[in-house]
């Protein structure tokens, strides 16, 4: 199991943070462009899912998988979107994303009055804590695959 990278978008689709851990192939475009592309795809996918879903979508999360990786999406009720790419065997990424929201985003962005909301997060403390949480998660540590 492994974690590739993480995107955080605010409610308006601005890329607030990008972090990567085991990304084996570098992207071909810059981060900003890539963020826009990811958000645009997710936005469409989400509205597609809402329209087509045979069940009531309760928890604002979904994932899609290719033969190589899995993209997990979780959205807080306030519209902050967390997107994480993992490998195929990783379970419960939704819980990890929620944990990142609770333990890192709320604590070190929302509660930091000099950290503007709706812009890219430059806080080093945030990056450090995020790294800690990600690296201590089971998905990151266990090397079963």
């Amino acid at each position: 199991m492994t974690i590739h990278n993480l995107y955080i978008f605010d409610r308006n689709g601005t890329l607030m943070y990008y972090g990567e851990w085991n990304r084996k192939k570098a992207g071909t475009m810059n981060k900003e462009e890539e963020g826009k592309l990811v958000y645009g795809m997710l936005f469409s996918l989400r509205s597609f899912l809402e329209k087509i879903s045979p069940l009531d979508l309760k928890d604002n999360s979904f994932c899609y998988r290719t033969s190589k990786y899995k993209m997990n999406y979780w959205e807080s009720p306030t519209g902050v979107k967390f997107v994480m790419n993992t490998d195929l065997s990783s379970p419960n990424v939704k819980d990890l994303l929620r944990l990142i929201y609770q333990m890192v985003y709320v604590e070190y962005v929302v509660k930091n009055p000099v950290c503007p909301m709706g812009e890219y997060i430059h806080s080093e403390l945030f990056a450090q804590k995020l790294d800690e949480v990600v690296k201590s998660s089971l998905i990151y540590t266990s090397k079963t695959s």
Binding site: K58, D59, S76, P77, T78, Y101, Q102, Y105, V106, V110
Partner: peptide, 12 residues
């Protein structure tokens, strides 16, 4: 509100 939601896990 972010803190409130993070603490309570309330749904919509």
């Amino acid at each position: 509100i972010e803190d409130f939601l993070a603490r309570t896990n309330y749904p919509r």
